[in-house]
């Protein structure tokens, strides 16, 4: 079985600060990490490899420094890594990103299962995973919280919904996006880190992928960002004091009108 895990390198969101003078994001010194949801996808890939025997490949699209993210995935036990990197892909929205990733996956060929995190912590769109399966025209299951089994080329999973979950069976190949509940990602091992440090990472540029220029990068992206701004900070509130009974009374008065 061949498993492909798609990941994204994101800024560690907790560290994203806004410069109050210029009203811009301060990205300097912000550490890059693997998107937290993608860690669950990586872990699930490694677990499938351990349980069923599989060859695992991690891919990402991003600037050259995204290689770090790939090496981290290798240190957790993924077998191979591919970096898709080209200025031609800069400015891609979710449509163009999923187009590019889908075509890279086609180039890898012979895949059975694609795993993605539910969404990325910088963009929070949750659109790239389903976008990839749509481009590849394979079945998808989003928000997967458990893989029950993989047997006879059929995968059976639990998909988290608002009021419970759906049990879904899909033939392979298919694409899953996973939520936190699915597992607890392992930390890398020292031996894995040493192996990852020496591993060769395949880099694919537009030269290798040769994609339709109308579908990549800024010009292949239907959406455009026209404005970025800081939301008005929540006004610091009012502190209620007194003994518990008094406080409860005050709060009741304040909330009364909101409670039907």
């Amino acid at each position: 079985m061949n498993v492909i895990v798609c990941i994204k390198q994101v800024p560690q969101t907790t560290d994203v600060k806004i410069n109050p003078q210029t009203n811009t994001l301060i990205r300097e010194g912000v550490e890059s990490i693997i998107n937290p949801f993608d860690m669950y996808a990586i872990e699930e890939g490694v677990r499938i490899k351990e349980k069923y025997g599989a060859n695992t490949t991690v891919i990402t699209m991003g600037p050259p420094q995204a290689e770090e993210a790939l090496r981290e995935a290798l240190s957790m036990g993924i077998d191979e890594a591919i970096l898709i990197s080209d200025r031609a892909y800069a400015g891609s929205d979710t449509w163009a990103t999923s187009y590019t990733l889908a075509n890279a996956i086609r180039k890898i060929g012979n895949f059975d299962l694609i795993l993605c995190g539910k969404q990325a912590s910088d963009g929070d769109t949750a659109q790239v995973g389903p976008g990839i399966s749509s481009h590849l025209d394979i079945p998808q299951v989003t928000y997967v919280k458990r893989i029950q089994q993989i047997k006879d080329n059929i995968i059976r999973v639990e998909r988290m919904m608002e009021e419970g979950y759906h049990v879904i069976e899909s033939p392979l190949p298919c694409l899953l996006t996973v939520v936190k509940e699915i597992n607890e990602p392992r930390l890398p091992s020292l031996k894995g880190m040493l192996r990852a440090k020496q591993a060769k990472i395949t880099v694919w540029t537009q030269k290798e992928l040769n994609l339709d220029p109308q579908h990549i990068g800024l010009s292949g992206s239907p959406t455009q960002v026209i404005k970025i701004f800081t939301p008005a900070p929540r006004a610091g509130g009012q502190i209620l004091s007194g003994d518990p009974e008094e406080i409860a009374g005050k709060l009741l008065e304040l909330l009364k009108s909101e409670i039907s």
Partner: peptide, 20 residues
Amino acid sequence: KVLAQSDLFGIFIPEEYGGM
């Protein structure tokens, strides 16, 4: 278990006995 999985118990043990 986490320390074991990360190979940290082996760092000071010679390689021929499974350490680092």
